[in-house]
Design a protein around this nucleic acid. Sequence first.
DNA 1: TTGAAAGCGCTAACAT
DNA 2: ATGTTAGCGCTTTCAA
Lengths: 353, 353
Amino acid sequence: MTRKSGDASRSTIRDVAARAGVSASTVSRVLGGVYPVSAATRGSVMRAVRELDYVADARAKAIAGAGTPTLAFVLEDITGPSFAHMAHGVEREATRLGHLCLVCSTEGDVRNELEFVEMMRSQRAAAVILVGGTADTPAYRERTQRMADSLASVGSRLVLCGRPPLDPGAPVTVIEYDNEGGAHTLVTHVLAQGHRRVLFLGGRADHTTALGRERGYLAAHRARGLTPDPSLVLHGDFTRDAGHRLMHQALVDGLEFSAVVAATDMVAAGALTALHEAGLKVPDDVSLAGYDDIPFARDLHPALTTVHVPYEELGRLAVRTALEHTPGTPDEHLLLGTHVVVRDSVGPGAVTA
Amino acid sequence: MTRKSGDASRSTIRDVAARAGVSASTVSRVLGGVYPVSAATRGSVMRAVRELDYVADARAKAIAGAGTPTLAFVLEDITGPSFAHMAHGVEREATRLGHLCLVCSTEGDVRNELEFVEMMRSQRAAAVILVGGTADTPAYRERTQRMADSLASVGSRLVLCGRPPLDPGAPVTVIEYDNEGGAHTLVTHVLAQGHRRVLFLGGRADHTTALGRERGYLAAHRARGLTPDPSLVLHGDFTRDAGHRLMHQALVDGLEFSAVVAATDMVAAGALTALHEAGLKVPDDVSLAGYDDIPFARDLHPALTTVHVPYEELGRLAVRTALEHTPGTPDEHLLLGTHVVVRDSVGPGAVTA
DNA sequence: TTGAAAGCGCTAACAT
DNA sequence: ATGTTAGCGCTTTCAA
């Protein structure tokens, strides 16, 4: 038992003042730092602070004008590797800039997002960062536009990180990366190996991240004068289980293909296992590529060819850009590049399907 | 451009009151919910609220006694899969119980931890959850005991989640899982396959998580009347890179072993790749096991035998237990069980080394 | 059912 | 250099 002051009997600045024989303002000044205070006064105040184990109530400071600023980020599930990396970038940069960092997992439920954003509005968070792709419906745009406006009205800022921009004029900071470009380059690489029937695997059918990558897949084909078979695009979600299930099903269905481009590395991992289970060798029998370049990609066997996305940088930039934003200034929209990481999972394919 | 009220001109409860032609208290009561207010009054207040797009300042509410409670969790790096799962559990349960959730990554620097805990004390967070193992030094115990006391003194609660308990009497809630037991069972399984020279790979030498697992490794040997060769324990850290590097070095050094037990699945993943690179087959030439049972473990090739840890549950319990704690009540200490997941990476070993 | 007034814990302008 | 006095935006007695 080492507890000093009685439990939960938080002492206030006035207790400290009384104990030190000075006024509350003096205590505030001593603790504040830079204001001129005599050494003697400072001494007795500090002693009182120590004896009482006093810490100023941050909420009271906040409301009085001082106080640590806060920033929030919202994602579907911190458990996804790319989410985790963005979150890490956000947290690091926020901390570096002296902000407290609130999180919320929506579990994919929009109502959670709405509710949380409203909460952040009342918290007067400096910025709210929506992390990760979404279904880009009119309802989404309208809803998000509203969030942007209502945050702006209390001096806060909405940030879309890895999420598509709204209509021009919305008070939003957007930090994206090039889903389409990355997929384009990746699929071009695959096609260059001679593959002609390339499966696109996983990702929610209505999800901007999946759609962007799919657009790249399509564009790469077209750029070569190829028209991909529509039955070669299989949707699901972004999990390893979806990859496993879809791949297994494709095999059972006797779908013809010589290469697989997965919507994410997670999907690719599941697909790889399904391929192995079917006795297929990668890349000898089937080539496989992923997207995201999560750390594990190197340890799949064969090591996974994939697209590297600067997730952490994305998170950092989201924070920095949002906090630097000056109202009245044009809204920022950044698009970060990606690059293909060639490893061992894509090999030559017969040109004749 | 849809912004309604002038930018950043947050309206206050008084603005709403004025607009609705009532007093501030009435507005407060209407918004508060359960207090009796006439339908007419409620109507005009709500309209004013809507027109002004008013949200009560959460900080002001907090200081006035109402206000959403807050909870914080601290971890080294959200990017680690097991951390991410604990974080997810924490966040879910906190949200479920109506709490806001603050995060902090320490990046392994104790000063960040100290600073953040002090911050949380001033935020009057309901609880602060320290997530993940650590070096269990006297300095650590003293420091942490101090955090526990100082949090308790403001009515907050320190929680150790996946981290060793302090000396009895410290005002702390502890939720652990059985590192030693899990490793014991796992290594027993490996030894039962006939392996006699089992490498223990990775983990920081001074880290409780690694040490607990190592103790289980040792105990399993002793239980069979075996004395493991001390040169078979190789420390590093918990990353896949460490696993790769250590495994590679062990191979170069010509260390003799027929099985490898990695401190974590991440380490195992790196080790597996190093093994493959050396042309060794798992489990034919060398058996390999991990610890944590992260989702990817299934997709390594061969699928990794490992120990399942209920990380998410751990996080959830940490929150629930902490928030349910009543001062004066005995301090909780939970120890969750683990179980071995047998997959394909451990095979029979020659009994003669 | 509603309003006036006090107070939450702090900071800051305004005196001395 | 230090104390006094107002607030900050909200809730909550206490009266009416």
